[in-house]
Simulated scan of single mutants.
Amino acid sequence: MGRLLVLEDEPILARHIKSTLERAGHAVDVIETIAGGVQALGAADYDLLVLDRRVSDGDGVRLLDLVRRSKSAIPVMFLTARSGTDDRVSILNRGADDYLCKPFEAAELVARATALLRRPPQLAASILTAGNIVLDKATRSAMIAGKPLLIARREGMLLEQLVVRLGQVVTREALDAKLFGFAEGASPNAIEASVYRLRSALSNLGADHHIHTVRGIGYCFAP
């Protein structure tokens, strides 16, 4: 169970969302404005944000942008009448974790909220950090000390897997499964080649975390 913040300015719908989530065992705070959301986020720690797009003082995306700029890993779900594919893709690319179109069934709202609350924070986060490295999973871009890290897609995927499991040993088998599809036919040295290229790129920009080889097992990303 968790503490949830809901942004919804339509009173009847707000009461319905609140009662639905409370019956599922969650503590729920409802706010009607983005300004109220900013105040609430500054006053309490929440486990999930449930946001409407259009409220009286603007677009709920502003709260999404606020929490992602703060590098918060809190999951964010949108409830909105906008059902266009472009709109959904835009919201997800900006760091949202889920998108439920109105009208919706109460059971689906509870199921989606529960699924987001089950996710480990580091896996759920859109913005990941490791020392002076900042990785944006949504845009698959990375910065080191404010400078863009220019790497190929495969090395970007490798970096994400290592940062998500910061300080843990990631096996070669796990990396192979994440980086190469069944049909790609990765060569025996493909992982080593990607590691070499990523190491060079990180070193060139002065990264303060490095890829350590754990002989016979895999790799660990640590200072």
Rank of each mutant, 00 (worst) to 15 (best):
G25Q: 05
G25D: 02
G25W: 05
G25Y: 01
H26G: 01
H26E: 01
A27C: 03
A27V: 07
V28L: 09
V28T: 07
V28C: 11
D29A: 14
D29N: 09
D29H: 13
V30S: 09
V30G: 02
V30L: 09
I31S: 04
I31M: 00
I31Y: 04
I31P: 05
I31T: 03
I31D: 03
I31W: 02
I31L: 07
E32H: 08
E32Q: 13
E32L: 01
E32Y: 04
E32K: 02
E32W: 03
T33D: 06
T33R: 05
I34K: 00
I34L: 12
I34F: 09
I34T: 06
A35T: 09
A35M: 06
G36W: 09
G37W: 03
G37Y: 09
G37P: 14
G37T: 05
G37I: 03
V38Q: 14
V38Y: 14
Q39V: 13
Q39S: 15
Q39L: 14
Q39R: 15
A40V: 11
A40M: 14
A40G: 14
A40K: 08
L41R: 05
L41G: 02
L41Y: 11
L41E: 06
L41W: 07
G42Y: 09
A43G: 10
A43S: 11
A44Q: 15
A44V: 12
A44N: 12
A44K: 15
A44W: 12
A44F: 14
D45G: 11
D45P: 00
D45F: 04
Y46G: 04
Y46R: 02
Y46H: 00
D47M: 06
D47L: 01
D47H: 12
D47W: 04
L48V: 06
L48P: 05
L48E: 11
L48F: 06
L49F: 10
L49H: 09
L49P: 03
V50S: 05
V50H: 04
V50E: 01
V50K: 02
L51D: 00
L51R: 08
L51K: 05
D52M: 08
D52W: 07
D52V: 11
R53E: 12
R53V: 12
R53Y: 09
R53Q: 14
R53S: 09
R53D: 08
R54Q: 03
R54G: 00
R54Y: 00
R54D: 04
V55K: 00
V55A: 08
V55Q: 01
V55N: 05
S56A: 15
S56M: 08
S56H: 07
D57Y: 15
D57I: 13
D57W: 15
G58Y: 10
G58K: 10
G58D: 11
G58C: 14
G58W: 10
D59P: 08
D59E: 15
D59N: 13
D59L: 12
G60H: 05
G60W: 07
G60E: 06
G60T: 10
G60Q: 01
V61Y: 12
V61L: 15
V61E: 14
V61K: 12
V61F: 14
V61H: 13
V61P: 04
V61W: 07
